[in-house]
């Protein structure tokens, strides 16, 4: 069996977000790029499953839609332990576009399990995994916080509001994962780092896709008024402000 993990190349989450003067494009100066945190969790779990599968899972691949400058991030995934990588050489303009491109590769390679993080920390769309599943006409399970693979049988837990559902599913399918899927993202080991360059990255050209949306402009949040301090002894005052001034009580 083969697992594909979809990974975004995103600004480090502590980056201060700035845009160009027209507010149309991210100002990438000084940005450190990382694997989208949820995708990193997906990758970690995929590798754990592979290691525990007793050979049932032969391979974990990663895929990224991005230009060549995404390759260091892809190699980090290889250093962490992915066996090989695919890159579709295109700007990842929106979720629909990304999912359409991944679908093309996935159709050719017949992966049994596809894993995606629940959202990307740049566009916060929470859409690629489900869109990909629809393009492939695969079932998808979203908000997965536990993924068990026993002798080829898959058991997932997904978060529903106020609880969890245990789901059984047969391959192929798309699992859209979130926190809880593994304890921590895996840190690459020295050996992995040294081997990353020896692992293949297959680069392909994008396919034509419909364009359904367009970013018109970005805005930055308005700067907030200073925090109003209330004396620690006067909690009545706080309640009065929350009721009378903020009108939230």
């Amino acid at each position: 069996m083969k697992i594909l993990v979809c990974m975004g190349n995103v600004p480090d989450t502590t980056t201060k977000i700035k845009f160009d003067s027209e507010m149309k494009k991210l100002d990438t100066n000084g940005i450190q790029w990382v694997i989208n945190p949820w995708d990193e969790l997906a990758l970690t779990r995929a590798l754990e499953i592979k290691e525990q599968s007793g050979g049932k899972i032969e391979k974990v691949s990663v895929i990224n839609i991005g230009k060549a400058d995404a390759e260091p991030t892809i190699r980090k995934a290889l250093a962490i332990g992915a066996d090989d990588a695919y890159r579709v050489d295109a700007e990842p303009s929106d979720s629909y576009y990304i999912a359409a491109q991944i679908a093309e590769v996935a159709k050719k390679e017949n992966f049994d399990i596809i894993m995606c993080g629940i959202e990307s920390s740049d566009f916060n769309d929470a859409a690629v995994g489900s869109m990909l599943a629809e393009f492939l006409d695969y079932p998808s399970v979203s908000a997965v916080s536990s993924f068990e693979f026993n002798d080829g049988n898959v058991k997932l837990k997904r978060d529903i509001d106020g609880g969890k559902e245990t789901i059984v599913i047969s391959t192929p399918f798309v699992a859209i994962v979130q926190k809880g899927i593994c304890i921590n993202p895996r840190i690459p080991a020295m050996r992995g780092i040294m081997m990353a360059r020896t692992k293949p990255i297959t680069v392909s050209a994008p396919v034509e896709t419909d364009s359904l949306i367009e970013t018109t402009i970005f805005e930055l949040p308005a700067s907030k008024a200073a925090c109003k301090m209330v004396d620690a002894e006067d909690t009545d005052k706080l309640i009065e402000l929350l009721h009378g001034e903020a009108k939230v009580l």
Partner: peptide, 14 residues
């Protein structure tokens, strides 16, 4: 190099 940066980051993350 990319490897050197990766090791630095790995050590930092750890």
């Amino acid at each position: 190099t990319e490897e050197q940066l990766m090791i630095k980051q790995a050590a930092r993350d750890f």
